[in-house]
Amino acid sequence: MTDLAASPEGPALAAGRKVLVRLEGVSKIYGAGATELRALDGASLDVYRGEFIVVLGPSGSGKTTLLNLLGGIDTPSEGRIVVGGSDIGRFSDGQLTEYRRRSVGFVFQFFNLIPTLTAVENVELASDLLKEHREPRAVLEEVGLGDRLDHFPSELSGGEQQRVAVARALVTDPPLVLCDEPTGNLDEETGKKVLGVMRELGRKRDKTFILVTHNSVIGEMADRVVRLRDGRVASITVNETPAEPEEINW
């Protein structure tokens, strides 16, 4: 792992922390020639263990592309994504699968739960992949759904569904959790609850959360805010005193 003191983005923040993922000039290009589209264009970023990053930007700025690349569900056209000394951009499909299985958890805007599995079974769908994992029921209790274990997604509210998705992302105990507009489909009150759960678990379990959103207010609770514009990292702001989710309003 790289020493964070050398990180251009926040020596003060980085003190004593380690880089989890390093992006070096990463681009994602769709099409070619006249129809070429650079969804991400030379993005560089160090992601530290245990931090809470909020990625902001307008539609089409490359937020989701960045998340997909970090999560190993898409591969970069240019640049390197270094994790534990290896460039995951050069990983085979099998290696990427292993990376996603052990190192990444996903939370999506539309929850993406399996409708035919109950809350606990949705979480177990992820935990089945690893011999060593956290107890699914315990994780669901941790996100406040101890009494909704056997409910199907259609029997849960949007906020509850999203908390199931958070539990599913955390049950394999990955160091990195990627959230794509996790509050985009929730009302403010519910959204804050979900963010609260994420923030708390991030701190308690030293997880890195990268949260992509349109909603700039959510940036107030981040350790760092990364702003994207036209596929490029426009700015990185370090938040010395992040707000608690219940303190922010949108």
Binding site: T97, E98, R100, F108, L125, L129
Partner: peptide, 8 residues
């Protein structure tokens, strides 16, 4: 989702 979770 399954692939993102790490299903091969």
């Amino acid at each position: 989702v399954m692939r993102a979770m790490g299903y091969s």
